[in-house]
Nucleic acid binder design. Structure first.
Length: 1039
RNA sequence: GGGCCCAUAGCUCAGCCUGGUUAGAGCGCUUCCCUGAUAAGGAAGAGGUCGGUGGUUCAAGUCCACCUGGGCCCA
């Protein structure tokens, strides 16, 4: 075999610049397409892309989810799976409408109707397209491989038709129905909000909280002149006050209150008497149930409310806060509505859909409901019914997009009866593989257990139209396609845009009563659109071929989004799957924590702490950002992102990897190494076998971590290996690389090839660059891209755990020795005669490793401390609390004292002889002690965890001379470099030095010449000596 | 108001499940060493009442309760 020579790679690298050229390479050679095509016919591994809403520019938090969505599909592809990655865009919904309204300067629905629905929806479509471009750019730049050409768009006619089909399936089961309910409603947007939308909009606000007197007008309380004391934080609802609710089982106090000689009688829950101030005397206690139907005079009489204004009973009333008497306004509270219906009370609503009081209401007609509070509180005061008024801070729901305060409002709405499939949802959730696991039974499980019906409809414009047509007599038809609609209407409609207003224009006679059928006006929640993507992305079941495609890719093996999607996409995806196919749409879900700014705050436009993703990647490189997201901290905890944290990644991990590559190519090229020269593993050194052993253990670890979606652990293992490789294997083997040792070069090459593959899902750019510049150069027969290779397979027979442990010990001993040397203030360049070692397993440590320690510490002889003279060693002992505590419990403190009082040398000697010994009255063995052996004075010692290294600091003239020679070599090497010689250049050296070291240098001439590649090495007395330690000065010439 | 998660060095985080007496790593800082991977590598030092209070225990960063602060979710 004639394998090619390698070429050197410069150590300096411009990461972002390199990434741009890799992007070109991928595009030009269609590498992404090739990576999936190569697996066609293999077992599929299905990934669903949760479509981003294209209503704004992408932020750094979008990178986070997209990194995770990229790394596992890349890994599974390398494992031989067929992983298609279809991009998607969430096009509909209020967010898009809001953005367009802002651009057009609109303030409400009226403006849109004036402008025209068709024109408005065109603007929405255009806005979506524009923002999709920005997402595409960001996605490409970060190296997220996803197929944009096949992307699904939720506004595409075939997508809408597929959604219609699924709605009809649900409608046929009787689970899609219209109902009236009090629900949160945004008066600005003119639409009800679903519960998962509601969840996103709570804001803490300060409202006026008022305590209001409702004078009693019947029974004995009226005779006492008592007033009910009612507390509310929504004074505007007092206009439509209909009743007052009390809890049947709560005790209510009739209290006489005297403040500055003013006397009055008030009724409050006994537990909440503290709401009253002044001198309070309880006249009487009455059970709530005995107050039923007691009448009162309402505080405001601005509108007509017939046959009402008495006390009703309700079990939802609490004595947590307020007064225990709750004012009832059935149009504005779900509980109120239910209670008042029970008493046959009227539902009176003085507020128009735009959130303003009806024009004919006195005092507040035409005023926005929240704005009316001030006027109404003033009015209450002037009427003398205001008892107390104080600001109250509490969370209040706001519209998640426009931040307008929501109003709970009785309105007709279409619902999906998700409560009727609750058991099925819980069953499907139990089968789901959640990461982290706690979500399954925690947050998400709780949500399912408390499931409520899905409020599906929206009174808006830009959304999937609800495909239900209805006649005056409320006969209903649900259509599943344009074809069905065309058949009903007797028209060819296959090219109709299935959006408003075009579908609204289609009418046909009712099959039952022949009256005209019109579409209901609502569009649907856009969360339904995205939850329908498993089938709608294929246009299922109408589009030819969609049935096969859907079946091959359902359910998903993997989806991944941030934690806020528990009630969003994770829910709608599972729910629609269960409703339509009786099976959840996904098997595994990775639920990410949020990205925070460097101070731990949420990134948001209005805080101005958003990191712009493209510039972040252009500054540090996409690989660095990716590695940070994947490996720094836990994927499921919230994490802080800042420039410093990301540049650390570059320095610590990526550049160390890169430097190792560069080092390898430098020497492979210099020695003319070819892969065909690689010796068999059995013929390689212990160091080689060790790093190969570590490599195979690494492959196992990384493979397992990726398969469990644990990128953090994969990253940790990879970073540790990079450090082992660079800072121990290469460092210790440097001499062999200079000598062109083929075993070392082959070993390093093999490690780098596998390492590059293992890293490639996480950092696809730099690994591709290495593949092209190193791997492919050394062996042109390999795959055209690292991303077209198979994932490395570990060879367990090459894993040698004993060897790994021995190297680990070697490194610990070296670390101790270095510490001792640093302490001794003798330069490492100066050799020492002897070091004594104390460590478990020292006697069986291979000679190779002992030699490495000697070399690393620059010591001539190493010996076991046990072999040294007995007097050389001091023994000290400490109580081992863990073992003693288990045996003796609370006596440990006394035993520890007794041990401390015993002569340690005698104690250990005795224990070693007989296995047990008595300390005080207690029988202990060797395991109950922590024994430390250190050499006596005159030595420099470092110890840790029972291992020690002791250095003999005595210097002989021979040792000093050897040290000086080494100094000369180092000096010349440095000069070679500063003079710009190539590492393989041969040189001529002329030198001069101080008198005292002349003979030493001359006698080491051969050795020095060899080390510095000198063909000539001659003293030249005309050269002036310098003022360094040896006075040495040299002049180098290329030979 | 309720649920879940989090709080350890100036910064980013391990350790906690399974309690053990000098609490670790990386970055940053100071000093020193080494040097043909050199914008690297090594050693030492400064820096911690392990958020607070109480409890369990011979022993608590670790287990329990409460509190404070932050995040997410629910109302």
């Amino acid at each position: 075999m004639n394998s090619p020579k390698m070429r050197p790679i410069a150590a300096a690298i411009d990461l972002p610049g390199m990434e741009r050229s890799i992007l070109d390479f991928w595009r030009t050679n269609s590498i992404f397409e090739a990576s999936t095509q190569a697996r066609e016919g293999a077992q599929p591994w299905t990934f669903y892309e949760g479509p981003p809403t294209a209503n704004g520019m992408p932020g750094t938090h979008h990178i986070e989810a997209r990194v995770f969505k990229d790394v596992f599909p890349r890994y599974q592809t390398m494992k031989g799976k067929y992983v298609t990655r279809k991009a998607g865009w969430d096009c509909h919904g209020l967010p898009v409408e809001i953005a367009v309204e802002k651009e057009l300067g609109f303030t409400g629905k009226g403006d849109i109707e004036k402008y025209g629905i068709a024109a408005f929806n065109d603007k929405c479509r255009e806005s979506v397209t524009r923002h999709v471009d920005a997402f595409t750019t960001m996605t490409n730049r970060m190296g997220f491989w996803v197929d944009f050409d096949q992307a699904y768009w939720t506004m595409a006619p075939e997508y809408v038709e597929s959604v219609w089909w699924s709605l009809k399936e649900i409608w046929k089961k009787g689970l899609l129905v219209q109902d009236h309910r009090v629900a949160p409603y945004c008066p600005r947007c003119g639409t009800g909000l679903s519960d998962h939308e509601l969840a996103q909009g709570y804001e803490t606000v300060t409202d006026p909280s008022v305590y209001v007197r409702f004078p009693v007008t019947s029974g004995e309380l009226a005779d006492l002149g008592a007033a009910l004391l009612v507390w509310t934080t929504t004074p505007w609802t007092l206009v439509s006050n209909t009743a007052v609710a009390v809890h049947p089982d709560v005790d209510y106090a009739v209290a006489e209150v005297v403040v500055e000689e003013n006397r009055e009688v008030l009724v409050v829950a006994e537990a909440l008497l503290s709401a009253l101030s002044g001198e309070v005397k309880v006249l009487k206690v009455i059970k709530g149930r005995d107050l039923e139907r007691v009448t009162y005079k309402r505080p405001l009489d601005l509108i007509e409310i017939p046959d009402s204004h008495f006390i009703v009973l309700a079990t939802y009333v609490t004595t947590e806060d307020g007064t225990g008497l709750v004012h009832q306004s059935p149009a504005f509270g779900a509980d109120d509505l239910a209670v008042c219906r029970g008493y046959g009370l009227p539902v009176v609503n003085p507020i128009a859909p735009d959130g303003k009081f009806l024009a004919d209401v006195p005092l507040v007609g035409g005023v926005f409901f929240k704005e009316a509070d001030k006027t109404l509180v003033k009015e209450l005061k002037s009427r003398g019914v205001l008892y107390k008024h104080q600001p109250f801070e509490h969370p209040y729901p706001h519209c998640w997009r426009c931040h307008t305060a929501l109003i709970y409002y009785a309105q007709p709405s279409w619902y999906i009866r998700t409560t009727s499939i609750k058991d099925e949802l819980i069953r499907e959730n139990n089968k789901t593989n959640w990461h982290p696991e706690t979500i399954k039974t925690g947050r998400y499980g709780d949500w399912l257990n408390n499931n409520i019906d899905w409020a599906l409809s929206r009174n808006r414009f830009w959304g999937t139209p609800l495909p239900i047509w209805r006649c005056e007599d409320k006969h209903e038809v649900c259509v599943d396609s344009l074809a069905e609609l065309g058949a009903l209407a007797g028209q060819e409609l296959s090219n109709l845009d299935p959006h408003r207003p075009f579908v609204d224009d289609i009418t046909f006679p009712c099959a039952q009563c022949s009256k005209e059928m019109n579409r209901v006006p609502e569009v649907i929640d856009c969360w339904y659109d995205s939850g329908a993507m498993p089938f709608a992305q294929w246009g299922y079941p109408h589009k030819p071929g969609s049935v096969e495609k859907f079946k091959a890719a359902y359910p998903a093996d993997f989806i991944c989004e941030a934690i806020d999607q528990t009630r969003g996409w994770f829910y709608t995806l599972m729910t629609i799957g269960t409703l339509v196919f009786d099976q959840s749409s996904y098997k595994s879900v990775l639920c990410l924590g949020h990205i925070l700014d460097k101070d731990g705050r949420k990134m948001s436009k209005h805080l101005g702490n958003v990191l712009e993703p493209i510039s972040l990647m252009d500054q540090h490189g996409a690989d660095a950002v990716r590695w940070y997201m994947l490996a720094a901290g836990s994927p499921w905890s919230a994490r802080r992102v800042g420039h410093d944290a990301i540049s650390d990644v570059v320095r610590k991990t990526l550049l160390t990897y890169w430097n190792t590559i560069s080092f390898h190519t430098l020497y492979a090229e210099a020695s003319g190494f070819e892969l065909s020269q690689s010796p068999a593993l059995k013929d390689r050194s212990m160091m080689d076998k060790w790093i190969i052993s570590e490599l195979n253990a690494l492959i196992q670890e990384v493979d397992k971590s990726y398969s469990e979606f644990d990128s953090q652990n994969a990253g940790k293992a990879l970073a540790r290996f990079i450090d082992d490789l660079s800072n121990w294997y290469v460092r210790r083997s440097r001499r062999r690389f200079w000598d062109g040792d083929t075993a070392a070069l082959a070993t390093l090459h093999e490690c780098l090839v596998s390492l590059t593959q293992l890293l490639s899902p996480m950092v696809p750019f730099i690994t591709e660059h290495v593949w092209q510049e190193l791997v492919k150069v050394a062996d042109p027969s390999v795959a055209a891209s690292v991303h077209l290779t198979d994932f490395p397979i570990a060879d367990p027979s090459r894993i040698n755990l004993e060897l790994n442990a021995q190297v680990a010990m070697t490194r610990r001993v070296v670390e101790l020795g270095r510490s001792a040397r640093a302490e001794s203030a003798i330069k490492i360049r100066q050799p020492l005669q002897r070091a004594l070692i104390s460590a478990n397993g020292w006697s069986t440590l291979p000679t190779d490793m002992k030699e490495q320690i000697a070399d690393e510490l620059n010591v001539i002889d190493l010996a076991d401390i046990a072999d040294a003279d007995g007097d050389l060693v001091d023994i000290s002992v400490k109580a081992n609390f863990k073992s003693l505590g288990a045996k003796f419990g609370k006596e440990v403190q006394d035993i520890a004292k007794a041990i401390a009082a015993t002569d340690p040398t005698e104690l250990v000697k005795g224990l070693r002889k007989s296995g047990s010994a008595k300390v005080g009255t207690w029988e202990i063995d060797l395991a109950d002690l922590v024994v430390t052996e250190v050499p006596k004075s005159g030595w420099m010692v470092a110890s840790h965890d029972g291992e020690s290294v002791a250095l003999d600091l005595a210097l002989t003239p021979e040792l000093i001379e050897t040290g000086n020679v080494r100094e000369v070599i180092r000096f010349i090497q440095e000069r070679r470099k500063s003079d710009g010689f190539e590492i393989s250049d041969r040189i001529k050296v002329r030198w001069n030095a101080e008198q005292s070291v002349l003979s030493a240098i001359s006698s080491a001439k051969a050795h020095i010449s060899d080390e510095v590649l000198a063909l000539e090495f001659e003293r030249d007395e005309t050269i002036a000596t310098s003022d360094n330690e040896l006075g040495i000065e040299v002049v180098l010439k290329k030979a």
